[in-house]
Amino acid sequence: MTSVTVTVNGASKTHQVEPRLLLVHYLRETLSLTGTHVGCDTGQCGACTVLLDGAAVKSCSLFAVQADGRSVTTIEGLAKDGKMHAMQDAFWQEHGLQCGFCTPGMILSACEILERNPRASEAEIRTGLEGNLCRCTGYHNIVKAVQAAAQKAR
C-alpha cells in the first residue's frame, strides 16, 4: 500500500491505496464520488474525464498515485454554492444530455476547451470534444451548449 494525498474539489484527502488502483476507482470507490463514470476503461470514451491541475484527463488511464500532491476537479466540484457552473447550465438549457452517462466527462472537457480558447468555433469545439463519446445526442445539442456557454462568458 502507498499513501496518496490529493486535493479533490478543494479538499485535501489522504489514503493508503494499492499502487495499481486507478484514479477513477479511487474517486468512485474510495471517495464515493460516483459522478465520474467508467465507460470503456481503455481511454477511448472520455466518460471518466476529470480535471487534473486544470487539464482534462482520463482518470481510467491514470493511477491514483499519479495524482499524489496534485489537484483534481470532478463533476461534483463544479457547482459553487449550490449554483451550477455556466457549462452545466448551458447543457441543461440546450438539452445537451439524454441518458446523462457521458455528461460529466463531456462537461469537464468542454470547460477545458473554453478555458484554452474562449472563442472556439464550431469546428474547434467538435475537435476539442473528440475524446468524449456520446451515443444519445448525435453531438448536435452538445455543440450548441458549448457555444451557448462561450457566448454567455463574453
Partner: peptide, 15 residues
C-alpha cells in the same frame, strides 16, 4: 427543460 437533468449535470445520477 428536463426535470431529471440537474442530477445528471451535477454528478448525482444513480446508475
Amino acid at each position: 427543460k428536463r426535470k431529471e437533468d440537474p442530477r445528471f449535470l451535477t454528478g448525482r445520477g444513480n446508475f
